[in-house]
Design a protein around this nucleic acid. Structure first.
Length: 801
RNA sequence: GGGGAUGUGGUGGAAUUGGUAGACACGCUUGGCUUAGAACCAAGUGCCGCAAGGUGUGGGGGUUCGACUCCCUCCAUCCCUACCA
């Protein structure tokens, strides 16, 4: 064996071996299954550091689970539809499918060079008609189940390029290419009724082993709120405006109603009122994204209409407000300036009355706290919650309102006006939409003619026009549709006849899903919805797709997310070449815990490489020794054995329940540092050599999930039999781990004043006497009386004076 | 605007249940080896102080014998916000 650690040749040899053995092709067997999935990448061109981190975490856990005798399934594929392919086509004159194909090849070879244990036999890509024909079938089944409908919805329209823009393509209200002022336009689109499942999506979160913050985000996103629908009759008119409010207790504080600029009434009024028409035009300039609407200056215009307050009979003005969303509630807000910050600002700006109806001592206006009602006629003095109930009862009596549960969650608009996506399988016959028959699926995405730019399907006459009376839908699906069910299709991706099969039953649900925190809401919620809907259709079993979730933090450089526009990207490839896959993997796992963000540091990579070199030096020239009964261990030898077994125990816990790989690596490093120099020399006694070899054996096993190439290579050389490093995990010996000595901490008033080696069998009194005799402790206590002694067994004693 | 995180040495981070703050690593300093450098090896390294000791986990306040950890409050940074993936 060579004396230098040569990562290149080692990694090649080991990867070839895995390939020949087909080690990571998974089949159903008797062992407990473990489906470990990392979020598949969009094939943007090259792997970035976020991918490397994500996939290393998934691979470490997969390998560890394999050593623990689980039947592990870890597939990989490509989320291959999306906007960047179209952009690349426009910029570089390559067709989206060629560009995507090329990127996949490139990224696949990068993944392979990192030694991830994927079952490539199940690889899938969402842009294959073999994949998306099933997506079209799912759409049909959803349609048949009443989960699909058509509705007008808003899009960003670029009047110069004559195209719909994504939110990220709108910069400061202008189109990113044309620079034209974008408009908000309303067009017909397909929607999926995710709101039918709102309640279940909420309640079944409780059954999931997910990070609490992700569950909380989903709960808030679904946003179930209890409130009332309250009707305000328009003066001089039979019509009325209906508002939704979660705070009916503040109804006596209403000083205006605000309706959305997209509300039908607003549009009707604009026909005969120039000022309103101008105002609505102005509102159309604001980007449709929620954050932009919320940040924009709050503007309004008085419609001069008045409504009648259902309880007081007062006349209340109706305004149009640019901050009112049509999609949430009824598109009409009741303005209570005293108890809502937004309403307060609006009222101040337009000199509307502010009437306080909830009183808490010390609260300044505006405040949205609950409290006792004032200025509320017969409801005065009643507390908010109770008052809300009574007011709703009153409104019901007057036929002016009802109790209502409202969700913030909106139905999912899945239509996209793009080329590079899955065609929505619909044909219009005399303008009536009909979902395409299963026999006529897939509706294939038409290929581009050579050297032509991707045009939206709506402009592709050959594709669209079928005959005189029939034409195709020209929108494609949101790419979130593609990624909402891939976890299930992975299990049966080689089955051309059926969407799912027995393998699906065996492998699902995903036992661990690893991916970026940025997907906490949308992707994860859509997938959960898909799973439930597919269950109700009879295609899948179980209530949830992902049993356990690990959300990894971002990789940062100079405190910011790595991105091309900031020019702070680091290309993993050069590091893989220079230091090898094992070093890159080790670095990634060592630098910070998986859920935290990771700050890239150049020099720490070298540190990781140095550590592997040390392991190589220690292990490459040794052969394992079997335990001999004749060994009589010295204290120093026993100390090393204890350290080895303790480390094993800690690392197992870190892998198993905490996913705390950085601390696992730190303790392996500690063990390595702990080995006495003379144990390594040629002249060491056999019992010393045994203790050293035991440490090496453990180190190789513990390090394998993280740095598999070097560990397996050294293992094959070190161990005298033909055993495979990946098939077992060593067991620690509790008798060796336990020690009857510990270091006692002695405190005076909670401050450490001394330490002492103690035996676990010592009584509190013995410890007390010994501690009080320590010079420093004596000095600090001095003349003071000891009022109290806190004694924590096998840990500390604290004298309170 | 709403929602979710994070904040500890020069740097990445550790402290798992309220019980020794700074493990492990990077960097730096000094020394060894070397013609020189790289690599490697040894020692040191939160801050103030010669020392005794004091002080220290974003700021301020609180609970406790004891707080990075629990509570209140303020500040800063990052992520998501429904057409980026």
């Amino acid at each position: 064996m060579s004396s230098d650690y040569n990562h290149k040749s080692i990694e090649e040899v080991i990867q070839k071996k895995w390939d020949q053995e087909k080690r990571y092709v998974s089949k159903i067997d008797d062992r407990e299954k473990y489906y470990c999935l990392s979020m598949f990448p969009y094939p943007s061109g090259k792997l970035h550091m976020g991918h490397v981190r994500n996939y290393t975490i998934g691979d470490v856990i997969s390998r560890y689970k394999r050593m623990k005798n689980f039947n592990v399934f870890q597939p990989m594929g490509w989320d291959a539809f999306g906007l960047p392919a179209e952009n690349a086509a426009i910029e570089n004159k390559v067709s989206p499918d060629e560009w995507t194909e090329h990127n996949i090849e490139n990224m696949k070879s990068q993944l392979q060079s990192l030694g991830f244990s994927y079952d490539w036999s199940k690889e899938l890509r969402t842009c294959d008609s073999n994949y998306y024909k099933w997506e079209q079938l799912i759409f049909k089944k959803f349609y048949d189940a009443g989960l699909v409908y058509r509705k007008k919805a808003l899009v960003n329209w670029d009047p110069v390029d004559e195209t719909v823009l994504a939110n990220e393509q709108v910069i400061d209200g202008k189109g990113w290419r044309s620079g034209a002022q974008i408009e908000i336009k309303e067009i017909d689109q397909w929607f999926i009724k995710i709101t039918d499942y709102a309640d279940e999506l909420l309640t079944s979160l409780d059954s999931l082993d997910w990070p609490e913050n992700v569950k909380l985000m989903q709960r808030n996103w679904i946003g179930k709120s209890f409130g009332a629908e309250i009707e305000y009759k328009l003066e001089d008119d039979k019509k009325s405006l209906v508002t939704f409010s979660t705070r009916p207790d503040t109804i006596y504080g209403v000083s205006f109603l605000a309706i959305s600029p997209n509300h039908k009434l607003a549009e009707d009024l604009s026909k005969n009122n120039k000022d309103i028409a101008i105002f609505l035009e102005k509102c159309k300039e604001i980007k449709a994204a929620e954050a932009d609407i919320a940040k924009a200056e709050k503007l309004g215009i008085d419609t001069k209409l008045k409504v009648i307050h259902p309880l007081t009979g007062e006349k209340i003005p109706v305004w149009i407000g640019n901050f009112v969303l049509l999609d949430y509630g009824t598109g009409v807000v009741m303005g209570v300036p005293a108890h809502d910050l937004r309403d307060f600002e609006f009222a101040k700006k337009y000199a509307l009355p502010i009437k306080e109806v909830i009183k808490n001592s010390g609260d300044e206006l505006p405040n949205s706290n609950k409290g006792k009602l004032i200025n509320s006629e017969k409801f005065n003095g009643i507390f908010s919650d109770d008052a809300s109930k009574k007011i709703i009862q009153e409104l019901i009596k007057l036929k002016s309102g009802k109790e209502l549960v409202q969700f913030r969650l909106r139905d999912w608009g899945v239509s996209r006006q793009r080329y590079w996506g899955c065609p929505i399988p619909v044909v219009y016959e005399n303008d009536e939409p009909k979902v395409v028959d299963e026999n006529n699926m897939p509706v294939e995405l038409p290929r581009l003619k050579e050297n032509s730019l991707p045009i939206p399907l709506s402009q592709n006459k050959e594709f669209i026009n079928l005959d005189e009376s029939r034409y195709r839908e020209s929108d494609t699906f949101d790419t979130f549709m593609d990624s909402s069910w891939y976890y299930a299709r992975f299990t049966s991706s080689d089955n051309q006849k059926n969407i799912f099969d027995d393998n699906t039953k065996y492998w699902l649900p995903v036992d661990l899903y690893v991916g970026g925190i940025e997907h906490a809401i949308l992707h994860l919620l859509y997938s959960r919805f898909f799973h439930k809907a597919l269950r109700d259709i009879g295609l899948l079993e179980g209530d949830e797709p992902f049993k356990r979730l690990l959300t990894q933090g971002m990789v940062l450089k100079d405190g910011a997310k790595m991105s091309k526009s900031k020019g702070n990207t680091i290309d993993p490839q050069s590091y893989i070449e220079k230091y090898g896959a094992d070093t890159v993997r080790l670095y990634m796992m060592f630098t910070s815990p998986p859920e935290q963000s990771l700050e890239w540091s150049e020099s720490s990579v070298e540190g990781a490489s140095r550590f592997l070199n040390k392991i190589w030096k220690l292990a490459s020239k040794r052969k394992n020794l079997k335990f001999e009964k004749s060994f009589k261990f010295t204290k120093q030898e026993l100390d090393l054995r204890r350290k080895s077994h303790l480390t094993l125990k800690k690392v197992e816990n870190d892998y198993e329940s905490r996913f705390s790989f950085n601390t696992a690596i730190a303790s392996i490093m500690e063990l390595l540092n702990f080995i006495p120099e003379d144990f390594k020399s040629e002249s060491a006694r056999d019992s010393q050599k045994f203790c050293l070899n035991e440490a090496i054996l453990f180190i190789l096993k513990m390090l394998f999930p993280i740095a598999p190439h070097i560990s397996e290579y050294l293992w094959n050389n070190f161990i005298n039999d033909k055993s495979c490093i990946e098939t077992s995990w060593p067991e620690f010996d509790n008798e060796i781990v336990e020690s009857d000595e510990f270091e006692l901490v002695i405190q005076v008033n909670g401050k450490v004043r001394g330490k002492m080696h103690s035996n676990i069998n010592m009584t509190e009194d013995e410890i007390k006497d010994l501690s009080l005799n320590i010079k420093n402790v004596k000095n600090i206590i001095g003349e003071n009386k000891i009022k109290k002694i806190i004694f924590v067994k096998n840990k500390l004693i604290n004298f309170v004076t």
